[in-house]
Design a protein around this nucleic acid. Structure first.
Lengths: 336, 336
DNA sequence: TCAATTAACGAAAGCGCTTTCGGTAAAGAG
DNA sequence: CTCTTTACCGAAAGCGCTTTCGTTAATTGA
């Protein structure tokens, strides 16, 4: 690979001048700049990112930490949609994403250590466990960071309006005439789970609807299987709910399966509303009515917030609540 | 951040010795090595990846190029499953993944240029267009590379056994008594599409079944919508097929929708078999019978092949064909 | 006991780039 | 015509690490 020395030699200028020409310094004449640029073109010169980073202390990379309980990684449709949006926005600003591991040449180090090692300019984390010590360590470091999907950390936050989402779901169900509304919740240890529960309770309260015993059930970590077992429990209740707000689309899919297995129908017997609006939601039967999280906006705002911190060279403690939207499809019907 | 100088000063040894101790050189005594390691521990020293790369010409990063016609990026369920598997395996060897853009500080450069700039040790590309000039440029470069999902390039290749997959699908349909079998193909410009067509034709030939006019139809670039329109055309035929092999699950979902809209049923009226086995396949109605691609194995083999090239410091031209599997669910039924 | 090994360490150059600080020549001011 | 600006360029140090090659001291062999 051609270096700055090569093009210095070729043009007869010093490396200083070459570097300056490449970085648009004002103290290099237009004429020499053109000569240099031409040599760059001819020799196919490209700067070396490592040398550049070493010298400037800026790497133009952003570390991504991606963690959820089910260990599916990038296969997670909701998280990967956010990251994709984040990537597009970060890319526009010239940043590359790096997915770091905890393995440094067979030494087990923390994510923070790995990101320090790589000298990333910022970190974005999507992780459902608010107390993950790895995440805390990063939040407490000096590296700019934005965390997605949590809502009370001492750093920049981007999250969906989960309370509003919960209310939206309940109110919609109520508008269809349902009063016996249950909630298969996401684990309250996750912020998203807890907030949706809050929204559920708040809406029920405002509507003056009682939450019957057993109607608020923990569906765990948002998986299909956990949704199924939660629904099975609901179905064993003496007074089976006529509608259930499920805190995640995957769980909702499990719930629907449980209902079908019981010989009942959605939405005729029981209405189901999910949360997330993953791709699958529009194609299962019945098409899932759900609360859509705006993954594009989440990714966009996260990128924006991180860029801001990087530019200002200081960590900002702000939070951005992203509106959600009710997507009406076929899994909810008026109460008979 | 503590540097090697800091720990040299603290221990009284030279930076040379410190570096050697850290890299397990034999000419440093066990005693001094321990002292140095202890200082490293105390000061929380971590090497600087950029300095290291600059000096050693090895970056311990792998560039990922990810491109498909529908521009969904990481949201693509099949591709992201492969990358996730690739990541796990690469991580084990100490490599980080970097998703590069074509934007270098607002200068539009090629992926190859970007990867050179970042000095990646290797490249993995998943891209459905075999003639993409960007991909060709990378293949022709000196950087180790492995490309996934193509099968005739001058480099290391990993791909599913698409011919066998096509045959598997047709034979299964035939075993159910179907003879009027159509194929909604993936665009023949993609290797996967072309090979599945080959498999389809071969199996039909071996079974001595004729391929009726209009029964081999191009479904384009694997999207749901394209699957739907292809199926609509099939439904307008005078002699409607009783079974169709669809070259991708998304297209199959579109096809099923088209059938339902026409008032017909799957699999009672028409049997549908897809390809890929994306997550959704198991949850739509009817549950989709499909050919499963082994994404874990594809990712694993790709990582293995790339590591091998990196270690041997030379590009290898090999190809690895990964077996596929028939997953029988509910979208195919015996011919009435 | 002396020469020849071997063990342990360090000086210094180099990786490719940026940036500060000076210096020179040309332009402008008076 | 002299003095001050301004425009343009380069020397050199520095970023944090690796690696070659010497050097010195300790060890071995005879």
């Amino acid at each position: 690979m051609a270096t700055i020395y090569d093009i210095a030699k070729k043009t007869g200028f010093s490396t200083t001048t070459v570097s300056k020409a490449l970085n648009n310094y004002s103290d290099v004449s237009e004429k020499t700049k053109q000569k240099i640029l031409q040599a760059v073109e001819e020799m196919g010169y490209l700067p070396n990112a490592h040398a550049q980073s070493l010298s400037t202390k800026k790497s133009w990379t952003i570390g991504v930490m991606f963690s959820e309980s089910n260990e599916v990684g990038m296969k997670h449709p909701f998280f990967s949609a956010i990251i994709e949006s984040f990537r597009k926005n970060a890319e526009r600003e010239g940043y590359d994403l790096i997915f770091a591991s905890r393995n440094l040449r067979n030494r087990d180090i923390s994510y923070l250590e790995h990101f320090s090692y790589r000298a990333v300019d910022g970190i974005v984390v999507i992780c459902s466990d608010p107390q993950d010590p790895q995440v805390q360590e990063m939040i407490n470091s000096t590296i700019p960071i934005v965390v997605i999907d949590m809502n009370k950390q001492n750093c920049s936050l981007v999250f969906s309006d989960n309370i509003e989402g919960g209310k939206l779901a309940v109110n919609y169900l109520h508008s269809l005439g349902h009063t016996k509304i249950a909630h298969i919740a996401g684990d309250a240890l996750t912020d998203a789970g807890a907030e949706r529960i809050k929204g559920f309770k708040k809406a029920m309260d405002e509507l003056e609807l009682p939450i019957q015993d057993g109607y608020l059930i923990n569906g765990g970590l948002f998986s299909i299987d956990e949704g199924r077992v939660a629904m099975e429990k609901l179905l064993m209740l003496e007074d089976v709910p006529s509608a259930v707000f499920v805190a995640g689309d995957h769980m909702a899919i499990g719930a629907i399966e449980a209902i079908k297995e019981k010989g009942l129908c959605v939405p005729e017997d029981i209405s189901i509303i999910g949360y997330d609006d993953i791709e699958m939601a529009a194609y299962i039967t019945p098409k899932l009515t759900t609360i859509k999280q705006d993954t594009d906006m989440i990714g966009y705002q996260a990128a924006k917030l991180l860029m801001k911190q990087i530019i200002q060279k200081k960590k900002l403690i702000t939070s951005k609540r992203i509106p959600v939207e009710l997507i009406i499809r076929e899994s909810c019907a008026p109460k008979k």
